[in-house]
Design a protein around this nucleic acid. Structure first.
Lengths: 202, 202, 202, 202
DNA sequence: CATGAATGAGTTTTCATTCAT
DNA sequence: TATGAATGAAAACTCATTCAT
């Protein structure tokens, strides 16, 4: 009986890989890709530098795996699970709630995904994934517009830019700017949600 | 008549400094701070690497001077010149117009200012400037709220996050995502402005 | 009947050792000592890297064992078995035939032995063996000169350099240079043999 | 007036490049390509490691430049200057003399050129040069055969293998094997020359 | 025992900074 | 004063060797 940990890697091997990914996420979020040295990532992961190269062919591959992993982890729930039909207003609220929960649970991940100097090192597969997800979001929003869930007199990509832009900006603000108590954070997130709703309501 | 050669800085010396700043802006925007090599900046500026060090004590100083320069250049018009009182709606429109014009004229500058991995290398002076400007914006928005120009039931920083977040997100989208014709860009910017107005109107 | 499992070394253990030596010979011949990685040798031998270290204390020991093994395997027949006295010409012919056969059967071995950057890593024992064999060849040739089998008006080491030099050069040429059909190779080897005979005949 | 040193590099720059090439020749000859670390080459050349990369794109480029430089320096006199027609015997003698002189003046160069694990890192240009020179030698020997300067009943490449094989083997022997006094070396080289003549005379 | 993942010293290469020209 | 070649510290990456499984 092999331990049921994962695919076919021993448990500690899988754990190491996870530790490297987690450490890389932290450092890339803190200092960007070019500002994060491989030995620093390895050290934070608690492994030797050589181990990192046993798990990822290069620093580039590491950042790409990380990018795709988090891009999917963030996008999939949004694209798949929209269970029972609810009112437009509720839909907006639940979307926003998802954003907030994701940001609370993985604050690093959003920071990392929104680094806009991915330009450099993303490989074809990552770019393809990003584009594909983007198209799926566009389609989803177009559908919402057709269903009169959101206003139909602006382009779908503008709708997306509004929701994402406000949320991410506020998230960055709240993370880096100040050390606000949770209730202040909640208050602002709620206020922003109401404003965004006004921006995109049908 | 500009003094020909010996005022405070010889004119070509001033020109060199500008060239360096311009080149640095381009490269930092394209590849981030850590991804841009000093010799590459010097080469793009058309000067020797040594010359860069005659004008800036270090790569860090260069990025800080650049940061403060553009932060001010972007913020000052917003904070100072609000000429004749106009209707709230017009105020929003003219603010948005300023954003669009600034972005059109200095697309690199917004990209550079919004790199969120400044975290690293910004010095005390830059951080102080950023915070001071932020506070001034907060005050300005608070005044607008008192004047019933924008809605007063959300925090001032949320208002700022909404306007900046939407604009910057859309700007990034339009710059990097696609190669849209100008009229498509204009259309989207106009749509976004109307939505943002709905979000923050009193 | 070979002892099944517990003689001195279990049979599969002996086989492993041989596989490692064979793989090392191939790789050292192909890429030299410093160009061949231990894990690559282990992989080609079909064993784990750890197993290699159970059989050889280090990469250096491995190369030294290999060197001495092939040096002896090549030299011993030459030094021992010179059966019935034959004519000088036949002696040359049979020597050359031995070279050709050895080269055909173990083309890697000659390549490996003639790497001249053994300089580095050969240990005292290997150097001693090489020198000892060299002296024995000198003595053998001196005897042949005394017996008027080869010309006596040149130093013995010159005779050796002639025979070995021509054969090894031609062997390298034929191995690496071209993809000649066997009969072309045979033809050239035969021609070279006749020339060498002219060079050293009494 | 710029110092007439060379092409367009300052004199000390050219000198540095030469120093690097000389140091690389020594180390590659002593320990092979894979056995020679870049910092060791730089140190022996008396320059910093970075300087090496200012002159050569990579360690590979360095070894290729070096290979082509010495290959040409060795081969060109052989292929070009065969002044007044002389007797076949004299021709052999003068060829051999050239080998001896070249070997005396540049003992490292022959050692380096004959490393047979160039296989790895030679680039297309180097391989093309080697092949081209080889073909030219073949043609030259074929002409000598037609002129009855050397025996015509063996392939031209066999003739070449004989002369080169004997000379290089003896050279290696004399360099590495012992510490013979010059007159012993001369004696052996002369003896070898006479033998080789017997091997290839018409 | 055999294994092969883990390791860190060592490799090649880059780059911020200096300094001779 | 402007330059850009030189530098060495630090980056990404490799590999001989060890050791838990």
């Amino acid at each position: 009986m092999t331990p049921p940990d994962d695919a076919n890697l021993g448990p500690s091997q899988q754990a190491r890989r996870e530790a490297i990914l987690a450490a890389a996420l932290e450092l890339f979020d803190e200092r960007g890709f070019h500002g994060s040295a491989v030995p620093a990532i390895a050290e934070r992961a608690g492994v030797g530098a050589g181990t990192l190269y046993r798990n990822f062919a290069s620093k580039e591959e590491l950042v790409n795996v990380l990018f795709r992993q988090w891009k999917l982890r963030f996008a999939e729930p949004l694209l798949s699970s929209w269970p029972t039909p609810v009112s437009p207003r509720q839909r907006m609220a639940s979307l926003w709630r998802y954003f907030c929960e994701f940001a609370r649970e993985h604050p690093r991940a959003l920071g990392f995904l929104e680094l806009h100097y991915h330009g450099d090192y993303l490989d074809a597969q990552s770019v393809a994934l990003r584009d594909s997800l983007h198209r799926q979001f566009i389609d989803l929003v177009a559908q919402l517009q057709a269903d009169q869930v959101v206003r139909a007199d602006v382009e779908a990509d503008v709708i997306i830019a509004i929701v994402e832009g406000v949320f991410l900006r506020l998230h960055a603000e709240l993370r880096h700017g100040h050390d606000w108590p949770p209730e202040q954070i909640e208050k602002r997130l709620g206020q922003a949600e109401r404003c965004v709703w006004e921006a995109i309501r049908p």
